[in-house]
């Protein structure tokens, strides 16, 4: 990489910016002691975005601190999810990761109490439209996104990692039980390593937000490399995927991290996850879709099929989450509103 010419740097910086990976790239170069060898002009862009990522990490820590203080009186255990969890748990690949919202999970039976406490501390619901409220509360695994009235930050409060209507049914109680504490009082937690991996794979392959597709697969790769070094992590991961009904996302997760990023995966794992292989030619079709959807959405990476592939995956993610009779009215409504 250090031998790259300025024209190569030009294209790399542009693609990495679009994939939201510029700051991550900066950290990787820094960790290998290569940053000083990079020409100053591209280096400035790397460092500039790195500054933004550091600010986001600080803001996320503060946000979680505020959430924790708001919920302290309720005594409800709070599980921090996704990007915020990676930062708080100090996972090495979280350095330089860019993200916007904070996601937390609480026990389903206490979600009303949590919502009230958050509202008292200044969080307000964002989707005021009655249809959206009903859609979220009836079908989704989370409250409508909350926004803090002063800080303008957005918070997603989940009670599960997939909606009730999804075709897979990971038991949220099992996730909560296995979560690991972040503080002495034990009321702030992150998911256990195997569960963090499974949640990341589920999020990537079932939620349809491919704008950050490459970043999300980089997350999954980071999690697998970090935890994969631990003794008996892999057998436990396979076991846990069965327990949580998440063998299919694990199958896809391993397939694409290995293909795209060469993630080191033990030889027995693909067989263990093979129960999650979809039937017939599905894997081949999915390969074609994912290889496009996971590339940066930069003109230099697009071909004629890219936009269609992202759209098909968006439809698919909805199909996986909701029965068809629900899906059709919801998509029509979304399409209708995008135009108005």
């Amino acid at each position: 990489m250090v031998s790259m010419g300025l024209a190569d740097w030009d294209l790399l910086i542009r693609q990495a910016r679009r994939a939201n990976l510029l700051a991550r790239l900066c950290v990787l170069l820094e960790e290998r002691g290569l940053l000083d060898a990079i020409p100053p002009a591209p280096r400035n862009h790397l460092l500039s975005t790195r500054t933004l990522a550091d600010k986001q990490a600080q803001a996320v820590r503060w946000e979680v601190d505020c959430i924790h203080r708001s919920l302290a009186k309720t005594g409800v255990p709070v599980i921090v999810l996704k990007g915020a969890a990676y930062v708080l748990a100090g996972l090495p690949f979280a350095r330089g990761r860019l993200f916007a919202d904070v996601d937390i999970m609480v026990p389903r039976e206490r979600i009303d109490e949590v919502e009230k406490a958050l509202m008292l501390s200044g969080w307000a619901t964002t989707h005021l439209d009655a249809y959206d409220q009903r859609y979220y509360r009836q079908w989704m695994h989370e409250l409508p996104p909350l926004k803090h009235v002063i800080r303008r930050t957005v918070l997603d409060v989940h009670h599960a990692i997939l909606p009730d209507t999804a075709r897979l049914h990971p038991d949220a109680a099992k996730l909560l039980d296995a979560a690991l504490p972040l503080n002495e009082t034990g009321d702030l937690k992150v998911l256990a390593p195997t569960d963090m991996v499974l949640h990341s794979a589920t999020h990537l392959f079932h939620e349809g937000e491919f704008e950050n597709g490459l970043r999300d697969i980089v997350d999954l790769d980071g999690l697998l490399r970090h935890f994969g070094a631990g003794a008996d992590f892999w057998p436990r991961l396979a076991e846990r995927a069965r327990e949580l009904d998440l063998v299919r996302p694990l199958f896809y997760g391993l397939r694409y991290t290995k293909r795209l990023l060469g993630t080191p995966i033990p030889e027995f794992m693909p067989a263990a996850a093979d129960k999650g292989r979809p039937p017939g030619v599905m894997p081949l079709l999915m390969d074609a879709l994912f290889s496009r959807a996971l590339a940066p959405q930069h003109p230099s990476c697009d071909d004629w099929f890219s936009t269609t592939a992202r759209w098909l995956l968006y439809i698919r993610s909805h199909y996986l989450r909701m029965p068809l009779h629900l899906l059709i009215p919801h998509l029509i409504r979304k399409a209708f509103r995008a135009d108005s």
């Binding site: 300025l6 024209a7 740097w9 030009d10 910086i13 542009r14 020409p39 002009a41 591209p42 862009h45």
Partner: peptide, 8 residues
């Protein structure tokens, strides 16, 4: 052209 540009 063909070098590095900050803003395209």
């Amino acid at each position: 052209s063909g070098g590095f540009a900050d803003f395209h």
